[in-house]
Amino acid sequence: MKQLIPLSLITLVLLSGCVQEVKPWEKETLAKETMEPAGGNTLARKFQEHIYFSKEASKGGGGVAGGGCGCN
């Protein structure tokens, strides 16, 4: 049941009629750094993910690129 929560949310958004056609020249706001994960600070994001990877048992979902570590 819990697995269905994300899919339900997606469906809600897509079916709610709130999706609007955005023209290429209207994408200035979407291209702002603050719209990117970690506000565009990729290195800070890598640090954060490395800490969580080292201290928690879950991983994944942040993309496929990235190396491993023998974290203690």
């Binding site: 997606i10 958004v13 955005v22 979407l30 994944g60 993309g63």
Partner: peptide, 16 residues
């Protein structure tokens, strides 16, 4: 690691 992603621009100021 495999990942499948879908991006949707909702309007000119938000995306999912």
């Amino acid at each position: 690691n495999t990942q499948l992603s879908f991006l949707q621009n909702i309007n000119r100021s938000s995306y999912l």
